[in-house]
């Protein structure tokens, strides 16, 4: 009697698929390993550094808004084969909130893996229909004269928010500014909060 294979069937299937792709010269084990490493490296820190730079460098800000993919590649994001990155500029009186109602499109190249809440059916359904209440649950209460612009990321681009630089951060260094930015602020559920100033 043949010994039963202890591996889950899905892993065996994946190995057969990878072997078949390699045999046809479509993708190699090395390319898959490199892609996996790039995905693991991506984290909200990349997006945070891009926002902090944009807050202090008008030329970089212009590039970020005009060509997010190029701006991201300058910060070490691997944009090969990635969807284009679009950047949504918050302005006084305008706040952006990103959701993907169809699936869970997320700017992974500059934010890393999407958090579970972003992929949840509750967020995807409610962010588009009841955005102010969703924001309030994150502690983000916006006055009525601030327009909430929900960006439903349904097609080719991946979107991140360029938030407004908070008051009280005058004279801060780039790294200090970047410490205010999280995945939550980069999709717009939270605003950057300066808190007590860090020692310079």
């Amino acid at each position: 009697m043949p010994k039963p294979d202890p591996r889950p069937e899905s892993i065996a299937l994946l190995e057969r698929l990878v072997a078949a792709l390699a045999a046809r010269g479509i993708v190699s084990e090395e390319e898959i390993a490199a892609k996996r490493a790039a995905t693991e490296r991506a984290s909200p820190q990349i997006g945070a550094r891009m926002v902090a730079r944009a807050w202090i460098d008008p030329a970089f800000r212009a590039l970020l808004l005009a060509d997010g993919s190029r701006a991201a590649s300058l910060f070490g994001a691997d944009m090969r084969g990635q969807p284009p990155l679009g950047v949504l500029e918050d302005r006084p009186g305008l706040h952006h909130l990103v959701v993907c109602t169809l699936c869970s499109c997320y700017p992974r190249a500059v934010l890393g893996y999407p958090p579970a809440w972003y992929k949840s059916q509750a967020y995807r359904a409610r962010a588009v229909r009841d955005p102010r209440r969703v924001l309030a649950e994150w502690g983000t209460v916006l006055p009525p004269d601030v327009q909430v612009r929900v960006v439903d990321s349904t097609a080719e681009y991946r979107w991140m928010v360029l938030p407004l630089r908070p008051a009280g951060t005058e004279g801060w260094e780039e790294a200090q500014l970047a410490s205010l930015i999280t995945a939550e602020t980069l999709v717009g559920v939270r605003l950057p909060q300066p808190g007590p100033a860090l020692p310079a």
């Binding site: 102010r132 009525p144 612009r149 929900v150 439903d152 349904t154």
Partner: peptide, 27 residues
């Protein structure tokens, strides 16, 4: 061609706050 199209939230959801909008990629 893919467009970014801006919608008035209130036209879609009557209970939405006045002035809120929705921006979506549509082919």
């Amino acid at each position: 061609d893919l467009y970014h199209v801006l919608f008035d939230q209130r036209a879609i959801w009557p209970e939405a706050a006045p002035g809120d909008t929705l921006l979506v990629e549509i082919f």
